[in-house]
C-alpha cells in the first residue's frame, strides 16, 4: 500500500551531546539520510547505543538541536503529524486505561467526553475491550503495550514512531504482539518507523529494514523485505526469511567486532 507521497524525509541528520560526567563530546549520530513513502513499515535495527532511539526522539521532537533536516507530512485537520509508542509502555500509572488512551486527544484540547468516545474504538481494536477502567499495574506487559499503541493511534498520526515497544516482553508474548501489530497495522494503515535490536522482529514486520552502524550511527544498508503479506508467524522459518536474517546479522556482527564488543 505504498503511496506516492513521502511520509518522512531526513537529510543529513547529525547529533552530538556533551557527556555531563566526563564533559567529552559524544557524537551519537554521524549522519542519517532516509526517505519513507507513505504507508510503509520501516524498521531501524542496529547494535545497542547506535543512536536509533536518539533518531526517533529527534523525529518526534523530543530532542532538538540536531543538525540537518527532518520533513514530515502535515497532519490532517484533527490529526497529528507523529505519535510515539514508547519503550516500557510508559503509561501513566495514576490513570486508567481509558484516560491513558485518550490523553493525546485531551492534549489537543478535546473535551474529556469526546476524547474518551474517540478512544473507545481503538481500545477495542487493540483488544482491550473490557479493560478501560483498569489501572496499568493491573495489566500484563503485553496488554500495557496494546494500550500504549492505542494511545498513539488515537491522535491519528501521519507516522507512527515505535521505540522498541516489545523489548521488555517475554519471548512468547513478544511473538504474539508482533502478529497483533501486523493485524492492527493492516487495519490502521499507518506509516511506521519501528526501532528494534531484534533482527527477526524487524524482518517479520517490515517492508524495509535499515541497518545502522555502531556509534556514531549511520545507515549501513537499506534492505527491502519482499516477503508476501499477510504474514503468519511461521514465515520466520522459511529459507527466504532466514537468509535475510543472516545477511543482516552479518552486517551487525561486523560492527560489533570492529568495535571490540563481545558478541551481543
Amino acid at each position: 500500500m505504498t503511496g506516492t507521497r513521502t511520509a518522512l524525509q531526513a537529510r543529513g541528520v547529525r547529533f552530538g551531546y556533551v557527556d555531563p560526567t566526563s564533559s567529552e563530546v559524544l557524537l551519537a549520530i554521524e549522519r542519517i539520510d532516509l526517505e519513507i513513502p507513505e504507508g510503509q513499515f520501516v524498521s531501524l535495527v542496529g547494535p545497542s547505543g547506535c543512536g536509533k532511539s536518539t533518531f526517533l526522539k529527534i523525529v518526534n521532537g523530543l530532542l532538538s538541536n540536531h543538525e540537518g533536516e527532518i520533513e514530515l507530512l502535515a497532519p490532517k485537520a484533527k490529526g497529528s503529524a507523529h505519535a510515539m509508542v514508547f519503550q516500557d509502555a510508559a503509561l501513566f500509572p495514576w490513570y486508567s486505561v481509558l484516560s491513558n488512551v485518550s490523553y493525546g486527544l485531551m492534549c489537543q484540547g478535546m473535551s474529556k467526553k469526546e476524547a474518551q468516545a474517540r478512544a473507545m474504538p481503538l481500545i477495542k481494536m487493540v483488544g482491550l475491550a473490557g479493560f478501560e477502567s483498569k489501572y496499568p499495574y493491573q495489566l500484563s506487559g503485553g496488554m500495557q503495550q496494546r494500550a500504549n499503541l492505542a494511545r498513539a493511534l488515537t491522535v491519528d498520526p501521519e507516522i507512527l514512531l515505535m521505540d522498541e515497544p516489545f523489548a521488555a516482553l517475554d519471548a512468547q508474548t513478544r511473538e504474539l504482539m508482533q502478529a497483533e501489530l501486523l493485524r492492527i497495522w493492516a487495519q490502521a494503515r499507518k506509516t511506521v518507523l519501528f526501532i528494534t535490536h531484534q533482527i527477526d522482529e524487524a524482518i517479520y514486520l517490515s517492508d524495509r529494514v535499515l541497518v545502522m552502524s555502531a556509534r556514531p550511527g549511520r545507515i549501513l544498508a537499506d534492505i527491502p523485505v519482499d516477503l508476501p503479506r499477510p504474514r503468519e508467524l511461521h514465515i520466520k522459518r522459511t529459507p527466504e526469511f532466514v537468509a535475510l536474517a543472516d545477511r543482516i546479522w552479518e552486517l551487525i556482527a561486523t560492527q560489533l567486532h570492529a568495535h571490540g564488543q563481545p558478541g551481543a
Binding site: 526522539k57 497529528s80 510515539m84 514508547f86 501513566f92 490523553y103 492534549c107
Partner: peptide, 20 residues
C-alpha cells in the same frame, strides 16, 4: 519517561503539570 510522553503529545506546560 512520563514527561517525554506528555511532551510528545504536545501537552501544554499547564497540562504537563496537572497530569504528570
Amino acid at each position: 519517561r512520563y514527561l517525554d510522553v506528555a511532551t510528545s503529545f504536545g501537552a501544554s506546560r499547564r497540562r504537563v503539570f496537572l497530569t504528570v
